[in-house]
Write a protein that binds this DNA or RNA. Structure first.
Lengths: 213, 213
DNA sequence: ACAAAAGTGTTGTCTATACACCCATGG
DNA sequence: CCATGGGTGTATAGACAACACTTTTGT
C-alpha cells in the first residue's frame, strides 16, 4: 500500500524477450530450497525486500507458450509488505498501482489480478489486514487501507465493529494528534495476532451446536 | 464419495522408491500441455478417470527432499468425481477413505489432507456440492454426501434451505420411491448450475448499498 | 462558538440453526 | 392405524449496514 493505492513491485526487463516491459520479481528455483524459500531469496537479493508480513502461494502458471523459448513453469505468490515499510529499491524497480499497470511482460498482468482477487477475498474472512497495516494505526488509517485494497469505500464505523467483535483489534492506549484543522484525537490500535487467522471458517453449514463465533 | 465416506483414488507403487506404498495418480508434465491438461491426461490414461466434475489447483509441493533422487516439484490438484460415476480401475489402483489411508508414498498424505480441507471450505461458500452429487438426488442423499465430506452430521432441513435460498437447488418434479419400511416418497432435485459458483463472496465488509444476496 | 474528526447507540434487515409439527407411504 | 422417513412453519439468536448522535479537539 503506497500513496493511498494498492501497488505492486515491478522490475523493468533490460534484455529480450520483452525487453523494456515490466515484470514481477522472481527467478529460478535452486536445488536446496522449496518454492517459498526461493521467492523470499529472490526478493531479498534482487529488490532488497526482506520484511514480508505474509506470503502465500497463489497458483502455478504453466501454459506452454507463456514465455518464449525454453519452457518456464512459474509458481506465483502473494506477498504483502506493511505500509510503514519502505525498502530501498534498485533503479530498475518501482511500485505501480495495480489499477494502472505499465506494459507488463508475459502473463504477469493476469498474475497480478489473481493476487489482487485473493487479497480482496481474504481481507473479508481472515485477519489479513495486519499484513498491510503499520504496527499501530488509527481506524481511519486502517479504513484507507481496506478501501484501497477492496476498491470501494469501507465505513470506519463498521470496520471497527467487525474487527473488534472478532477480537482482532486491541487499543494500545495511545492516541494520534489531530490534524491542523482540529478534531478529536484518534485512538491507536494494533492487531492482536501477528500471523494469519481464519476468522469466519464456515460461512454456512457449521457443525451442529456451534454458535457462530 | 463411495460407500458413505469420502474416498481418494490411490495407486500402489511397484518400483522403488517407496515400492508397495500407495500414491496419488500423476506424472510428468509434457512440453505441449499446461499442468491441468497434464493431470487430466494422467487420470484418463493411467486410471481411466474421465468424468471430473471439478478440477482445481491446490498447491505446489516442492521440499527438496520430498522425493528421493532427482528433484521433483509437484503441482497438486483437487479433482472430484460424481458419486454415480464408477470408473473401471486397473488392478493396482483403488479407492481409500480419506480418514483411513493406507501407507502412503512421499508427502502424499499431506496433499490429501490439504485437498480435504479445501473441499470442506468450499462446500460452505460455493455450490461445489454439484461435483459430488448425481444428476438427480434426494435431499437425504445430498445430506449424506455433505456429512461425509464435512465430517459431521448436517441437517437435511437446513441444507435444503441454504441451498434453496441461494437458488442452487431446483426440483425436477420426479420422486424417489420410499424404502422397504415405508415413508413419504422423496422429491428429486438437481443443481441449477453445472460449474462452480461462489455464492457467498464477502462474508463481511461488503460494498456499500449491497444487500447481502 | 463553530467546524472537523472520532467514536457510540440504535434500528432494521437478513441469515442461519433448532425444533416442533404436518404429510405421504408401507406394512 | 402405526411406524418411518420427507418436508414445512416458526421461533430465536446473531451479524451487519446505515445513520443519527455524542465526544473531543483546533481555530
Amino acid at each position: 500500500m503506497r500513496q493511498g493505492s494498492l501497488q505492486v513491485l515491478l522490475w523493468q526487463r533490460a534484455l529480450a524477450p520483452h525487453s523494456g516491459r515490466w515484470s514481477l520479481p522472481g527467478g529460478r528455483l535452486c536445488a536446496d530450497e522449496d518454492v517459498e524459500a526461493s521467492i523470499r531469496r529472490q526478493l531479498a537479493e534482487k529488490v532488497d525486500v526482506r520484511q514480508l508480513a505474509h506470503v502465500e502461494q497463489l497458483a502455478v502458471f504453466s501454459a506452454p507458450d507463456r514465455v518464449p523459448g525454453e519452457r518456464v513453469v512459474a509458481t506465483a505468490f502473494l506477498g504483502l509488505v506493511p505500509c510503514d515499510n519502505d525498502p530501498e529499491l534498485p533503479n530498475d524497480t518501482s511500485w505501480y498501482p495495480v489499477e494502472a499497470l505499465p506494459d507488463t511482460a508475459f502473463d504477469h498482468e493476469a498474475i497480478v489480478l489473481r493476487a489482487r482477487n485473493r487479497l480482496r477475498a481474504k481481507l473479508s474472512y481472515t485477519n489479513l489486514g495486519f499484513a498491510l497495516a503499520a504496527p499501530e494505526f488509527t481506524v481511519s488509517a486502517l479504513r484507507e487501507l481496506y478501501s484501497a485494497a477492496l476498491g470501494y469505500r469501507v465505513s470506519a464505523t463498521n470496520l471497527q465493529r467487525v474487527l473488534s467483535r472478532r477480537g482482532l483489534l486491541e487499543p494500545t492506549g495511545h492516541t494520534a494528534p489531530p490534524g491542523p484543522s482540529g478534531g478529536r484525537p484518534a485512538a491507536l490500535f494494533r492487531f492482536t495476532a501477528g500471523g494469519i487467522l481464519v476468522t469466519d471458517p464456515f460461512a454456512v453449514l457449521r457443525p451442529p451446536g456451534s454458535a457462530r463465533a
